[in-house]
């Protein structure tokens, strides 16, 4: 039996009837059509599906859409404001923090939350702070550089 939910995604409210078992990530990607959020493992390890749910970075492959009823969600598509890239997005571009780009949306969301919580992280804090996100391409160094760039930018 389908259940009615109401979710605000990137500022727009969506009313939907969904199966109770529908994963939040499938709701975002297949129902709403925002495909920037990716699926990389379905066991909550890789973090490609990370989105912000009520201000918290969450792995949307392990949350049901019905659990997000009433939530305010931000996905990678909603991170830039008024045509301006978020400092973390800019950092990833400036510092070559991505290659294939598949982990990138989740990595950027997780990095943004990391900086929200700790605006001046050490390299070690960045590396541990991104523990929930896997990247197979970059070797992480340029991702660390990207987060540091964003931290500097936010202070400037």
């Amino acid at each position: 039996m389908k259940k009615a939910i109401s979710v605000n995604i990137n500022g727009a409210t969506h009313q939907s009837e969904v199966e109770p078992r529908l994963l939040l990530v499938h709701y975002i990607r297949d129902v709403i059509g925002l495909t920037g959020t990716h699926i990389g493992c379905e066991t909550s390890i890789c973090g490609a599906c990370t989105v912000m749910v009520d201000g918290q970075a969450v792995k949307s492959c392990t949350l049901l859409a019905v659990q997000a009823d009433g939530a305010i969600i931000k996905t990678i598509e909603g991170l830039a404001t008024g045509g301006e890239l978020h400092a973390v997005q800019e950092g990833f571009w400036e510092q070559h923090g991505l290659q294939c780009g598949y982990c990138t949306p989740g990595m950027i969301i997780a990095s943004a939350q990391l900086l929200d919580r700790n605006p001046s992280p050490t390299e070690d804090e960045i590396r541990h702070g991104l523990d929930g996100n896997l990247c197979r391409c970059t070797g992480y160094q340029h991702i660390v550089d990207a987060v540091q760039y964003a931290a500097r930018k936010a202070k400037a």
Binding site: T35, T37, I76, L79, L85, W93, Y102
Partner: peptide, 21 residues
């Protein structure tokens, strides 16, 4: 030179196979 691929990818606007509907 920073990459020309990146603007679409850092905004979630690239199209991998499952993104093609």
């Amino acid at each position: 030179v920073k990459r020309t691929e990146d603007p679409r990818l850092i905004q979630g606007l690239g199209h991998y196979v499952d993104d093609i509907k």
